[in-house]
Amino acid sequence: MLEARNLRKVYGAIEAVRDISFRVEKGEILGVLGPNGAGKSTTMRMITGFLPPTAGTALIGGHDIVEQPIEAKRLIGYLPENAPLYPEMTVVGFLDFVAGIRGFRGAERRRRVESAIERCRLTAVRWQTIETLSKGYKQRVCFAQAVLHDPSLLVMDEPTDGLDPNQKHIVREMIRAMAAEKAILISTHILEEVEAVCTRAIIINEGRIVAAGSPTEMKARHPSGRLDEVFRVLTQGTAEQTTAHR
C-alpha cells in the first residue's frame, strides 16, 4: 500500500532525513519510533505530499506522491502533529467542508459526515465551535477528518501526544478498530504505544533507520528484553537536533 523509497530531505545545511525506505501493507500498523528531531515528522510530511523530498519518493497504492500528487492524496488520511484545525468552525461545519473537498456530494456527503461523527464519538460536541473543545476532542475531530473518506492509508503523527490516559485509550481503540482494512503509519516517541498497537516498528535516529522488526523481535535485541533499553542503546549519545518546522 505504501512504499517509501530512499526518502531524503535537506533543509539548508541540516540533513533531516538521510535515506529512508520501508513498506506498509494493508492490515499492518507500522510504528515509527525515534527521539525528538530524529526526522519522523519530516518523513511523514514527505509521504503525505506536504513537503517535497530532496530525493526519493513514496508510492501510495501505486501512485507516486511527487508525480501524481492528487491521485496519491485521495488515498491518504492524514492526522498532522498537534491536530491542526480551523478554530472558528463548528465540528459539523468542518467535517462537511472536508467531505466536500474529498469529493462527496448530496446524501453521500451527509452520510460520510454522520458516520465520522459517530465513529469518533463526537455527537455530544457536534454543534460546538472547534476552539471551545478540549484537547482530546480536538484530536478526535482531526482524526474524524482523516478517516472520513475511508482512506487506504492512514498516516498519524503522534496521535496520542498530550492526551490523558483515558483519551489515549479511546484513540488507540479507534486505531485498532480500523486496522484490518487499512495500512496505518504511526509516529510516536511513546514506547508503550508501539507495544499497544503496532504490528511492526522501525526506529529512526538522525534521519536513518537504525532498527526494524516486530515489537517482540525488537525487544530480543537487548538482554533485558525491554523496548526502552533497545531504544536507548540505538539512539543514545545523539545531540538533540531541532529541525526547522515549515
Binding site: 503525505t48 491521485e71 491542526p84 480551523y86 478554530p87 472536508v98 474529498r102 515549515r246
Partner: peptide, 16 residues
C-alpha cells in the same frame, strides 16, 4: 494557516 498548522491539512487534501 501557517501559524495554526492548518496549512498542513489544506495542502495534503487532494487539491492543487
Amino acid at each position: 494557516e501557517r501559524r495554526t498548522g492548518t496549512i498542513e491539512l489544506l495542502l495534503t487534501f487532494p487539491v492543487t
